[in-house]
């Protein structure tokens, strides 16, 4: 069993394939440092998000975009520091799979929103009255 494990380590060190979640330089202190750094940035981004949501310093309509940007940044931080997904050649398959997943997620969310907005518009009464906000009968 230890043979298998050292073989895995060997793959990682020699730039073979890596599994998602594998710390590439599997040393303890380096790993610890990665997680602390990741945590620090994530805390910073979280606080920033909560602050942005309440502040009046930012131009109102831009707040949603700022929040979305912070969220994307934070997801990236989680991927890199906690899930150890990188762009190294040994990570190609992991990243390609992620890219495919992200593509589908985007298609599902934004495709649905786009389609449903248009459908709701078509459902509006012909007089041009706004559709009832409640969506009730």
């Amino acid at each position: 069993m230890t043979d298998h494990h050292s073989e895995d380590i060997a793959h990682r060190v020699e730039g073979g394939d890596v599994a998602p979640g594998d710390v590439i330089h599997g040393e303890f202190t380096a790993g610890w440092r990665t997680y602390v750094l990741g945590l620090a940035i994530a805390i910073g981004l979280t606080i920033a998000s909560f602050w942005v949501a309440q502040t009046h310093l930012i131009y109102g309509p831009a707040i949603d975009m700022a929040l979305a940007t912070l969220a994307v940044a934070q997801m990236g931080i989680h991927l890199i520091f906690f899930l150890h997904i990188t762009t190294g050649p040994d990570n190609t398959n992991n990243v390609l799979a992620l890219a495919f997943g992200i593509l589908v997620v985007f298609l599902v969310i934004f495709g649905s929103i786009w389609i449903m907005i248009h459908m709701n518009q078509s459902m509006m009464p012909p007089t041009g009255m706004p559709a009832p906000q409640s969506g009730g009968m």
């Binding site: 786009w114 389609i115 248009h118 459908m119 518009q121 078509s122 459902m123």
Partner: peptide, 8 residues
Amino acid sequence: TMGPGGDV
């Protein structure tokens, strides 16, 4: 035919 409109 469910009415998403011409461009969609």
